[in-house]
Structure formats: structure tokens, C-alpha cells
Amino acid sequence: MDLVSDQGLRIDGRRPKELRKIRCKLGVFAQPEGSAYLEQGNTKVLAAVYGPHQVRNRSKALHDAAVVNCQYSMATFSTFERKRRPRGDIKSTEMTLHLKQAMQASIKTELYPYSQIDIYLEVLQADGGNYCACVNAATLALVDAGIPLKEYVIGCTASLGNGDVPLIDVSHLEETMGGSNLTVAVLPLSGQIAVLEMSQKFHVDHLSLVLNEALDGCRRIYEILNDTVKNHLSEIGAISGWGKSDL
């Protein structure tokens, strides 16, 4: 089945280069140092950041950098079929590792030797691009926690429809119906790629096409997240009187 109609629309009505609607909010929890909620279409993710704090397992402490610990999980109700999802199954372990790799690339870990930063991610609803939504939510939660970052790390997926039309921000339906998917986590300002993964092989002719599309998506997501952060800051700032203690 074609992922893009002759009229140039995808199954859900988007054009090939359109992102799903992104909605996000910082500071959704009181307890953690930082938290964020992010929706990318119907994929909905919560992120919470604790730390930096002392390393729990001393043997793992690093003398020159903070340890970044990620924890990925999916809610039992997150997919169409309810399933118990034990922590630590292969899929979530892999996710955890990839998340850690992306977050480490972004956080200035060298500022916190002998410390640990915990990032908890929970997928509330899964509709494709779970990893990307997690990366993006984690970035926002880190910002909320006030942890210094080199720059945002942003995740985005891309795929090919009808053989050669690059599609961005792939939904679950497109993931299952289409061919290979490309997932990247990128530092968009410097253009560095932190993580790149493909569900299947791409033909070499197509790889650059799809990758460029995904990178472009990252830049656009970056704009959206950055606006959210700015709005959030101006709200917080206005309430707190921009740090004037006499209020």
C-alpha cells in the first residue's frame, strides 16, 4: 500500500515533510529537579530528571564526569493491546542504552565529577517514534532541571514512502506498513549526530535523502522546543519577578 497518495498526502493527512503536532510542557512534577511532558502526535511521554547527586554505587563513579543513568519504560496501557511490560526486557534495555548515548552527548558531564544524573522516561502512549519523543522530552526535563547542556539533543525519524518519497516523523501505522525507518538523535546547532539507527538496510542511494530529511526535522523540532522553553521561562520569570527577591 502506498504511504503517500497521488494527491501528495500521507495516510493521516500530513504532507511528506510535515511533523506531527508537538505539544509540550516543562515542570509537570514538583518532586524531581526537572520534568517535562511531551506529545508528538499520539505518542505521549513523561520525563523526570533527578540530580546531580552522589553516585549510589561508588565503584561506578567517574573522577572527571557525571554518570548519566537512564531508565526507559512503557505504561501497560500505552499500546492498543494491554501488556505487562517488565523492566529490563531486551527492547527497553536497548532503548535505555541509546537514550544514555544521546543524553551524554548533550550534557556537560565534565562539570559534575563523582556525581550522577538520573533520567526517567515513561511512554504513556506509543504511536511511533517513541525514542525520539523520549529524547525530546528528556532534553526539556534537563533544561527544567537547570543542568548545563552543550546544546539541545533532538530526536527525529524518517522513512521512505512509495519507494522514493522521504517521509518525516513516522507514525506507528507508517512504521509497520512501510519499509525501513531511520532514527537519529542530533545536536542540531552543531549538526553532530549522537545516535543513528535503521530498522532495516537502506539502499545507499536513499540513505542521504532520508538522513537529510531527518536532520531537517530535528532542526524544526528544535525550534518548537526552544520556543516552549522560552515561553516557560518568561512565565516562571514573570511569576518570580525575574529573581527580584523583594517580591
Binding site: 493527512g13 502526535g41 492498543f80 493491546e81 504511536d127 501505522l173
Partner: peptide
């Protein structure tokens, strides 16, 4: 978003986005 029911063993509630 709209709802769709399919029979795949169980009755599933499927939510898909539909952009206007």
C-alpha cells in the same frame, strides 16, 4: 482523532490521528 474498532482476536480501540 477518531476511534476504530478492529477484530483481531480482541476488540481493540485504535486511535489514529487525522489531520484536517
Amino acid at each position: 482523532t477518531f476511534l476504530r474498532k478492529t477484530k483481531r482476536g480482541n476488540v481493540l480501540k485504535i486511535v489514529r490521528e487525522h489531520y484536517l
